[in-house]
Amino acid sequence: MMTDRFPIVSQTELAPGIFQMVLQTPQMAQEARPGQLVDLYCAEKDKLLPRPISLFDADPEEGTLSLIYAVVGKGTEEFSTYDEGDTVRVTGPLGTGFPLDRAADMNEIFLVGGGLGIPPMFFLAKCLHALYPEKPIKVFLGFRSEPWIGDIFTPYAEVLPSSDDGACGFKGTALDRMTAYLNEAGACARILYACGPIPMMRAIQPFAEEKGIETWFSLEERMGCGFGACYGCPAKLKAADGTTVLKRVCKDGPVFPGKDVIFS
């Protein structure tokens, strides 16, 4: 884990308002694991707090980290103006990431990504496939309308897209798509990793519980420092003894056992 300025290798607009930024960060690229995040800082001093962004990919050989972000406010707007060769201050990689070993005894792996929760699923799919080349990986991608990512997953996983308006794939949510798949498929041991809007994970929780699928959710919360110092981003979880515990999304998470997450 480190904090420093790093050069931008490339910046591409994948779809209107959605950018991919590649950073030259050799040490972080070595350390990076799927489900972790980095904090990006703005150059302008009126925006002091970091912007947390999940890892879309890491390439230890090239020494690069790749991020996908949407322009939603002043900070991400500033990032979108950066060019190749500019530098940006980054802290990371942060958080614990997805537990890959939990998939060891499973027959099938589900990845569920909604909206800007899709990018971290790519790094995860790649790493899971490298670890368990024989295991089928199904990635359920939920879009509002037109898809802006998908084919890139195909070397590692089967993509099952859906969209709210039916513009791509199945008309409905990623969970609707998964339900349809499970109605056809036979029973087997499954694990599910998800990242996306809270309503998506809130809906997956009882569904997976009923089907006996182990879940891991990557949560989002407004952050302060983004590295575990300020307690600005607590997640509420059920402890084994039935009590409630608070964990830091940025440092103890952002990935938590799905069955323990208490959605407020």
């Binding site: 002091l48 707090l49 407004r222 981003c233």
Partner: peptide
């Protein structure tokens, strides 16, 4: 102590607000 509900942090010009 459990602290306060979220959001606990807001960014403002020249600083931040917290209600941890």
């Amino acid at each position: 102590w459990d602290g306060n509900p979220t959001p606990r942090i807001a960014e403002v010009y020249g600083g931040m607000l917290n209600s941890v």
